[in-house]
Design a protein around this nucleic acid. Structure first.
Length: 1061
RNA sequence: GGGCCAUUAGCUCAGCUGGCUAGAGCGCUGCCUUCACACGGCAGAGGUCACUGGUUCAAGUCCAGUAUGGCCCA
């Protein structure tokens, strides 16, 4: 097995082989169990969108999850990491439509079925890419269980969840203002709207009073909506209010007579105010309930008419609820919203009703997908009653009492399953979660898309001139609910297993809606004899004139079920792959242990998973811990994003540095701040050299790599940047290929890997099986440095365990780095070189420490450690008593080291540190005097230092090139250099033939100056009575000791200086 | 407008509950092609911890404010 190791670690040579070994062995596969003695550890991956390949942000998040997952697997947990992808409704549909457009087709031309097929192809392509990337990164997911938010298992869960919420009255249909994206023709949730500052104008329009007594001036940024105005509002505190009270306005163009109302939402004009709104206000507000959310609210308060003057593409139209369009208004019909704006402003100007126009910069909602301004638009949509206490209230009650700042009065933590158990790390994010739920609005879940879970509701409209529904039972049911609300009724459909509701649309129109559950629900829910299966039910409904809602669900609806749907909820027995050992995944692994995600996901996803998991599973949380990781920014402090093209493909980093180097660096960067900066370089595809690209500033003010770049060493060769491709201004070709990215940030990780590689290479060359003993080595009987490295191993293991428990990832990486590089390589390996070949016990220690080091490092750097594992396992020679390192074929499934706490010996560590300070003093002097490494020197020291040197068992001699140790009380050679160490004079001789006395004096004077400063500092502290009396006694004593040591060092240096003459 | 984060060595960042004689990596300087590693070793230079106040025996760390940059939400 053991082959010669190359001099340099080349990740590409081994990473793929290692991945294959993991896959073949089933190392990452988890099965459900009822065995309580084996604790579970589970994580569901935040399913990446199938819109595009993963970027560095995903790499960061998945690395952190993998560290935790691998660690717990090694600790003996039954560990499941559930992988999968998200269909990402609108995002995917948009990219597919874009691709189709490039190919000259359109979605509407090809039809729903063909389009979904195309999208499915896209999904398959990117799912493969994403899973490939996860594998390349070393993510130890259970790849036997890859889920997709639209696969059968997830679709069943979505259908069931919808059915339950519908049945329980938590899903309703409502006519509301939605955030309408006129470009993609769909409603967006509030979270899908991005606010952007826009340099616009404030137009001041004059509306004549009906009685001819003058006019009022309204200020608006959106004059095109005036056609739908149904009131003018004024603040009741406005001095003009009394005069205008009860009057009406004749709306220009339309001629509509609309009231002047009083509402304190209206901002009082104040030219002196620092608030731009008050500066700009005319005091009169045009109220357009159908086209502005605030006006909608005013409309509700004042019972105003709602007149929608726009079509779905945001053009002016009288087909959607506007029935008093005058002759004058006809000219504006059909105009787009911005054409209409111009035309209307021109009309007001030419009719002398435009008072003024002022530049005004304000914030406008834009579609996160199409980037066009959203249009508040009145339409029928499905809502989840997220504001219901059963959802938002439940989410708030889930919060850990230590993290929640307010709690509902009636609630006592712990009185319901899951209450008070949700914890955020870092804890500041609990506030984001809380504030979101305290101000939550009902969640619009319907999307006018094709790609997604189609809403499982069939509807039929009944018209009856009598104003009564023909069915008496339905009339009775309707009488019991508020007008416009849905009433649940019993019918042949409910007898067949569906939920049947009815709602009054207008005076003589009713809509009946039937929610059909999935077949598995029909199988499990008790029903009477009229039951039908799903297909028969749907066929009967359609035969009866019911039509299925064409809309699909918001992507987050299916994501919200992810920790349940991936595990077979609601009926795992219907999906045999989720069962086993007499139980199922859901019972074994939900609640999951942790969710790791980015902070903008707290509202979009974390919130909804908590609400749903709790609602559907009797208060049970989807997870107890939420870790919010930092945002990866580019070198200019800009968020990495697809649209900016400043994102980095992890495969580029794996290509330039290796997966472990990438992972190690990402882990090391993960502190609890919220941003990490990643300056990105480009790699010239022609020459392979890394270089800093030329940057340009976009019109939006972003710093991005110029679309085209020139090879740094060959000006005739060019290449294309990722930004160029993302912005669509550059296309890669054979001559101008797309350049990969890299970053010098990852050098540290690469160097670390190489260091470990070589440490193992050294060790296996020195370890000799025949030296081993069958009896475990007693650590107390080993060499000083062996005891020391075992002590350091013990404290390192403890620190790593604490770091994981507290999600301090950078501490994990730094602790590993320190132990392996500094302690193991720089000190231990150097120290044992003279003795290792002959010392069997030391060989056992070296083998064991390397074995343990690979285990400790494995969660962060799985590839190199797995590659080295058989080499170290083979080379081991002997066990160490008190250190458990059970053999394992694969490192990925090996046990985490267990070390006896007695292994950590403070006295040994203390002596080592003292000896090492002496070593450093000697080395410094050697360096100053330019002594060759091979030259042995003599140390002349007083008794206490001689004891230390002896106790350290050759450490000082080996690490500082000392050939001989003598007592300084004896005769000193003519040429010797003094060093102040622990308050005594230590002399070194044999450094060189002659010593420059001036240099010596300068060196000693520098020591004296430094010590004098320290002494002054200590004296200052100790002469402060407040300190001496107020500070803890041990600190005061420590200061006294340091003062004494500094004084002794100064005296020794002074004596040496005097000795030089 | 509300919330959050950052400001520490030339650069990128640690420094958790106040005790620091302020650390690391890169870069820089000098020496070393020493039989694991030049993706290396040894040594060194480099910081009034953004600013102004305050609390405290003690402030990089806590509090208030200011400035600059960034993110999220409205």
């Amino acid at each position: 097995m053991t082959k010669e190791l190359a001099k340099v670690y080349v990740p590409a040579d081994t990473e793929k082989l290692v991945s294959e070994r993991w896959a073949e062995s089933g190392a990452f596969h988890a099965e459900p169990t009822t065995d309580d003695s084996v604790p579970s550890y589970s994580v569901v991956i935040p399913p990446p969108n199938v819109t595009a390949a993963l970027h560095l942000g995903h790499a960061l998040n998945n690395t952190l999850q993998d560290v935790l997952v691998r660690y717990h697997r090694m600790r003996g947990f039954n560990t499941l990491w559930m992988p999968g992808t998200d269909h990402a409704g609108i995002a995917t549909q948009t990219v597919v439509e874009k691709r189709l457009l490039q190919q000259g087709t359109k979605r509407l031309e090809m039809g729903r079925e063909a389009f979904i097929e195309k999208t499915q192809e896209w999904k398959d392509e990117y799912e493969e890419t994403i899973l490939g990337q996860l594998t390349e990164m070393g993510a130890s997911c259970d790849y036997d269980r890859v889920r997709f938010t639209m696969d059968d298992m997830c679709a069943t869960a979505v259908r069931h969840a919808f059915y339950i919420l519908f049945r329980d009255g938590l899903i309703y249909r409502g006519k509301r203002l939605v955030n309408w994206d006129p470009a993609t023709g769909t409603a967006l949730s509030d979270d899908e709207v991005e606010m952007e500052d826009v340099a616009g104008h404030m137009w001041y329009l004059r509306y004549p009073l009906e009685d001819g007594s003058g006019h009022v001036t309204v200020a608006t940024t959106r004059p095109e909506t005036m056609l739908g105005d149904t009131a003018v509002a004024i603040n009741p505190d406005d001095p003009r209010a009394a005069e205008l009270r009860g009057k009406n306005v004749r709306l220009p163009i339309v001629g509509r007579i609309i009231p002047i109302i009083e509402d304190d939402y209206v901002v009082l004009p104040d030219p002196e105010s620092s608030d731009a709104k008050a500066q700009m206000s005319s005091g009169c507000l045009k109220v357009t309930p159908a086209h502005d959310p605030n006006d909608w609210d005013i409309g509700l308060r004042h019972d105003l008419e709602v007149i929608n003057v726009m079509a779905a593409d945001a053009s002016i139209s009288d087909q959607y609820g506007w029935d008093d369009a005058s002759d004058e208004a006809q000219q504006f019909l059909g105009l787009g919203r911005y054409e209409a704006r111009e035309a209307l402003v021109a009309w007001f100007e030419s009719n002398n009703l435009l008072e003024k126009v002022v530049d005004y910069s304000h914030s406008v909602g834009h579609s996160y997908r199409s980037h066009v301004p959203i249009e508040p638009w009145l339409s029928d949509q499905w809502y989840v009653a997220a504001s219901d206490d059963r959802l938002a209230g439940s989410a708030l009650r889930a919060q850990s009492p230590e993290q929640a700042t307010t709690r509902s009065a009636e609630h006592q933590p712990g009185d319901t399953n899951g209450d008070g158990e949700l914890r955020f790390v870092p804890d500041r994010y609990a506030k984001t979660f809380q504030q979101w739920h305290e101000g939550i609005r009902d969640w619009c879940i319907s999307r006018q898309l094709w790609w997604g879970h189609q809403i499982p509701v069939w509807s039929s409209t009944v018209v009856d001139a009598s104003g009564r529904h023909p069915n008496e039972a339905i009339n009775n049911a309707l009488a019991l609910v508020e007008p416009g609300a849905a009433a649940t009724v019993q019918s042949r459909w409910t007898a067949a297993g569906a939920v049947h509701t009815v709602r009054r649309l207008t005076d003589d129109e009713f809509v009946e809606s039937i929610c059909v559950p999935p077949q598995s629900t029909l199988n499990h829910e008790p029903r009477d004899d009229d039951s039908m299966d799903e297909a028969a039910l749907v066929a009967a409904l359609e035969a009866d004139g019911f039509v299925r809602d064409p809309d699909v669900l918001d992507t987050w609806f299916s994501s919200a079920l992810w920790p349940m749907s991936t595990m077979g909820w609601p009926y795992p027995e219907d999906f045999p792959e989720t069962t086993g050992n007499g139980t199922d995944l859901l019972s074994t692994f939900n609640p999951t242990s942790l969710l790791s995600t980015a902070r903008e996901i707290i509202t979009l996803w974390v919130s909804r998973m908590v609400m749903f998991n709790r609602y559907f599973l009797d208060g049970q949380l989807p997870y107890t811990d939420v870790f919010i990781h930092a945002m990866v920014q580019d070198g200019h402090g800009q968020k990495m994003s697809k649209s900016l093209g400043n994102g980095v493909d992890p495969r580029d980093i794996i290509y330039s540095h290796g997966a472990d180097a990438m992972r190690f660096t990402l882990v090391q960067m993960t502190t609890d701040t919220q941003d990490v900066r990643m300056p990105v370089d480009m790699v010239c595809p022609h020459t392979g050299e890394a270089f800093t690209p030329e940057f340009i500033t976009t019109s939006a003010g972003h710093h991005v790599a110029a679309p085209e770049q020139t090879s740094p060493s060959d000006p005739t060769k060019t290449m294309v940047s990722a930004y160029g491709v993302a912005a669509g201004v550059a296309q890669p070709s054979d001559d101008t290929p797309l350049a990969r990215n890299t970053s010098a940030k990852f050098d540290g990780g690469r160097n670390f890997s190489n260091k470990v590689w070589n440490a193992v290479r050294f060790a296996v060359s020195r370890l000799d099986d025949s030296m081993g003993s069958s009896e475990p080595v007693n650590p107390g009987a080993t060499h000083f440095v062996d005891q020391w490295i075992l002590s350091r191993l013990a404290t390192t293991i403890a620190t790593l365990e604490e770091a994981v428990a507290s999600y301090q990832f950078n501490v994990y990486a730094d602790t590993l780095y320190d132990f392996i590089w500094r302690d193991l390589c720089d000190r231990y390996l150097e120290a044992i070189k003279p003795t290792i070949d002959e010392d069997g016990a030391q060989q056992a220690v070296l083998g064991a420490v390397l074995d343990a080091s690979l285990r400790l490092m494995h969660p962060v750097c799985p590839f190199i450690t797995e590659t080295l594992w058989p080499h170290v396992s083979d080379a081991r020679c002997g066990e160490i008593a008190g250190l458990e390192l059970p053999a394992s074929e694969l490192l990925a499934t090996a046990a985490w080291p267990v070390i006896d706490s007695s292994m950590s010996n403070d006295a040994v560590i203390g002596d080592f540190d003292r000896a090492y300070r002496l070593i450093t003093e000697i080395r410094t002097l050697r360096a100053k005097q330019n002594v060759k490494p091979k030259q042995r020197i003599t140390v002349h020291a007083p008794a206490p230092v001689l004891e230390l040197i002896a106790a350290s068992g050759g450490l000082v001699e080996t690490l500082s090139g000392v050939g001989e140790v003598a007592d300084s009380a004896g005769d000193l050679p003519a040429i010797s250099s003094p060093v102040a160490f622990e308050g005594s004079q230590v002399f070194l001789s044999g450094l060189s033939d002659e010593v420059n006395l001036d240099d010596e004096r300068a060196r000693l004077e520098a020591v004296i100056e430094q010590k004098s400063k320290q002494i002054a500092g200590f004296n200052g502290k100790l002469s402060n009575d407040g300190y001496v009396n107020g500070a803890p006694a041990h600190l005061v004593q420590e200061t006294r000791d340091m003062l004494a040591a500094a004084v002794a060092d100064l005296d020794a240096a002074q004596a040496s200086l005097d000795g030089l003459g």
